[in-house]
Structure formats: C-alpha cells, structure tokens
C-alpha cells in the first residue's frame, strides 16, 4: 500500500479541560474511497471530525493534507484545503433560508452586494443533482423543513463546494429507509468520482455496504484501521465494544495498534 492518504492525522491528543477525549489518534482517508469511522457513543468520533474541520484545536499531533503538514486553525482553513463536513447537529441557521445556509460564510457577491441570483441557481442545481428529498423552494426558511430535508440541505451544502474530502457525521440518523439508501448511494457516488469520503455511522450493515476501509475508535483511541474486506461484522462489533478483536485492536491501554 504505497498510496499516500489525502488526509492523515498522527498522534492527535485532545482534551476538554481535565477530560482527555482523544488519545494519540491516527487516522487516514484515501481518494476514491469511503472510510467509515465507527465507535460507540462518546468514543470521540465527532470530536475528531471537529478537529479535522478546524472547529477544535488539538493539543498534540500532526495534520497532513496531500502528504504535507498543514496548520488548520479554523473552519476557513479546512474549507480552503477542500474539506467539507456535514456535522452531526447539521449546524444550520433556522432563521435563514436554504440558499443562505448553503453559502453561509462563502457568499457570492458582486462588489459589496450579495449575488442572490447566482447563489440561488447554484443551490437549486446542487439540490437537483442530489434529488434526495422534495424541497418546495430553495428560498424556504430552514425552520420550516422536516428532519430529512434539513439533513439534505446540510449534505447539499457540503457537496456544493466541490471539496476534495467530504466528511459526514451520522448523516442518516434522521432519515427513513428510502432516504438512507439514497444518502448511501450518494456517498458511494462521490467516492467513485474520486472524492475522499469519511462516513460516520452506527449501522454496520450500511458501513459494510459502502465503505472501503473502517476505522474504529474506542474510548478516544484508534483501535484499528482496516480494509472492510479484511474483517467481519462481528470483528468490528468487538472493536467498537472492547477495543480489540483477536490480534486486531488495542494491545494495551496506551493506544498501540496492532
């Protein structure tokens, strides 16, 4: 395996006050592949994603992008690298409409004036391309949308920018069966188009259906990063629940991976 990962984290430590949430975490994601990030509630998946997105700074560790060490000090830095994230809580402004949310922080302008028409066109085109869920008008306020529609807007926001890396933190949690299938199909399609996709999910059937690799976090430590084809579902369950499975996983509590 000589392919360099587009996104690589090494030795990430992250504490909130006295509580250390991430311990020496290593994580890699590759172009054209879906990497599933799994782990129990509270394992630190969302925290890791926020570190990647520049929302949280980490206490120690390296952030490499396309093989180069980079400094990501805020959401704008991550966006500039081409990292787009659908956060678990979606991070939408209820009082703004769909277009405004999709372009928030990166509005199209003509001089000092917002270029509403261009943004509206681009938003409508992106949503049409996803065709995941009915939205009456792209000028609808997000507060008027259902859970699934909000999820779609958040995903469309990430797709809109043609990023290199798309990270989805539990994107199907609020979705029904049909919509979940559509999101998974989209995830696969993005990766097949050469993008790097990171998918966080609790549903191992979904994970095995779409992912190329699986990274399992256990209590803030990376238990294992494996190829999906090399493991069985029950092994992944063991990694999630106890941090190890046979010769896979954490050897000791100091976070060494097998």
């Amino acid at each position: 395996m000589t392919v360099t990962p587009i996104l690589e984290l090494r030795g990430i430590d992250k504490s909130f006050g006295p509580v250390q949430v991430l311990h020496d975490v290593a994580f890699s994601a590759y172009p054209g592949e879906v990497t599933a990030l799994v782990g129990d509630n509270g394992a630190g998946k969302s925290t890791l994603v926020k570190c990647i997105g520049g929302i949280h700074s980490f206490d120690a560790g390296e952030y490499l992008f396309e093989g180069e060490r980079v400094q990501v000090n805020g959401p704008r830095d991550a966006a500039a690298l081409g990292v787009e994230i659908v956060y678990q809580d979606l991070a939408l402004c209820d009082n703004l409409d769909i277009v405004q949310n999709m372009f928030l922080g990166r509005e199209k302008r003509r001089g000092p004036i917002l270029d509403e028409a261009t943004m509206e066109e681009m938003a409508a085109r992106t949503l049409a391309g996803l065709s995941v869920r009915t939205v009456k008008s792209v000028r609808q306020q997000v507060s008027h949308l259902s859970g699934g529609q909000r999820q779609t807007v958040a995903i469309a926001k990430a797709v809109l920018w043609n990023g290199k890396v798309v990270i989805l933190d539990e994107p199907t949690a609020a979705l029904g069966v049909a919509q979940t299938a559509q999101v998974l199909e989209l995830v696969r399609r993005l990766a097949d188009n050469g993008l790097t996709v990171v998918l966080i999910s609790h549903n191992l059937n979904d994970v095995f259906a779409v992912s190329d690799r699986i990274a399992a976090l256990y209590l803030g430590r990376m238990a294992a990063q494996v190829r999906t084809t090399d493991v069985t579902q029950s092994q992944v369950v063991e990694l999630i629940t106890s941090g190890r499975s046979g010769d896979l996983g954490l050897a000791t509590t100091n976070g060494a991976t097998a």
């Binding site: 959401p75 402004c93 209820d94 009082n95 928030l104």
Partner: peptide, 24 residues
C-alpha cells in the same frame, strides 16, 4: 439585507455555533 455582514448578523443571531463553523 444585501451584504454579507448583514447576513452574518442574522446567522450569529440564529445559531452562533453554525455561524462559527461557517468560518464567520
């Protein structure tokens, strides 16, 4: 209503964490 600055005021008022994550 017509500038990014104005929009960002609404965004911060609506959900300041979302605004922060948008790089505002």
């Amino acid at each position: 209503s017509r500038t990014s600055f104005g929009l960002h005021i609404y965004a911060v008022g609506g959900n300041h964490e979302a605004a922060r994550r948008a790089g505002i």
